[in-house]
């Protein structure tokens, strides 16, 4: 008897599965960071990736996008290898991964999201600029379009990155800690944006490190610690036993987990 996932896959090959990872292993300097990851993410899911520091959360999304060499296994996006579907993938890197003193304006950064749709030697057109402006408006950053990026607060920087991801007009988004170090207003704006994207059938894979909010923000959770501990709807996965096996015997975190579980009950 086939499992429900298999049934979906065979009925409608490729189209309802946005991300499929099979037996993925990634190693840094011969030391495995991710081990035998198997994952099938249907379309239209808002997935939070949680796990302790060093669990390989960022590594997982980078490897899935082909940014890191993988030791074994494969990744398919909408039924095809990642390289063939790059324009359908959007990426929000960690805010600290870039130099915010770089001599570009907010508009320049958002326009980078359009580069994947332009060929070699082609410059962003008026249409690309209009799209970029719309995306900036969606994150309430349009008035800052001509600002130099070093004059932005942390929350504003994150909104610019989100606008850039929106400008990519992708179907599958990978976001690396978009909530890290942002103000409350930005946090609420990001949550709203994630849900809006999900309601439009986009799939979102979001690395998140705060457990209590993870339960509220995401409808699916991927508990990760080198391996997939659990993946499923938040209310089924966010249990004491599963969180404990994700975070191991780390006392401080365990008490947080206990608190989070209590808050749930």
């Amino acid at each position: 008897m086939p499992s429900p996932e298999n049934k979906v896959a065979t009925d409608n090959p490729g189209s309802d599965i946005s991300l499929e990872i099979h037996d993925l292993t990634v190693a840094y300097h011969k030391k495995p960071v991710l081990w035998g990851i198997d994952l099938v993410v249907p379309r239209g899911k808002l997935v939070g990736i949680v796990g302790p520091n060093g669990a390989g959360k960022s590594t997982l999304i980078k490897a899935a996008m082909g940014l890191l060499p993988i030791s074994s296994g494969w990744v398919k996006v909408f039924g095809e290898p990642v390289k063939k579907n790059l324009t359908r993938i959007g990426y929000v890197p960690q805010r600290e991964s870039v130099d915010w003193d770089f001599p570009v304006s907010v508009m320049d950064v958002v326009l980078m999201g359009r580069y994947g749709h332009l060929g070699l030697l082609r410059r962003p057109s008026k249409q690309d600029r209009d799209i970029a402006r719309e995306c900036l408006d969606k994150v309430k950053m349009l008035p800052y379009a001509n600002r130099q990026i070093s004059n932005l607060s942390g929350g504003q920087q994150q909104r610019v990155f989100l606008a850039r991801a929106l400008a990519q007009e992708s179907d599958l988004y990978f976001m690396d800690e978009p909530f890290a170090g942002v103000d409350a207003a930005t946090e609420a704006a990001i949550v709203e944006l994630l849900h809006e994207l999900k309601s439009r059938g986009k799939t979102l894979m979001v690395v998140h490190h705060d457990l209590p909010t993870a339960r509220r923000y995401f409808d699916s959770l991927l508990l990760l610690n080198m391996r997939v501990v659990a993946f499923g709807p938040t209310d089924q996965v966010f249990t004491h036993d599963l969180l404990q096996s994700t975070y191991g015997g780390r006392l401080t975190i365990l008490s947080e987990v206990a608190e989070a579980v209590r808050a749930k009950e």
Binding site: L67, Y91, Y115, R164
Partner: peptide
Amino acid sequence: VLFYKELLVSSFDPALAVSLGI
């Protein structure tokens, strides 16, 4: 002038550049 956008994005955010196919 010709490769401005490739130079710009790979200098500012190399990870994004690679995810865009540059």
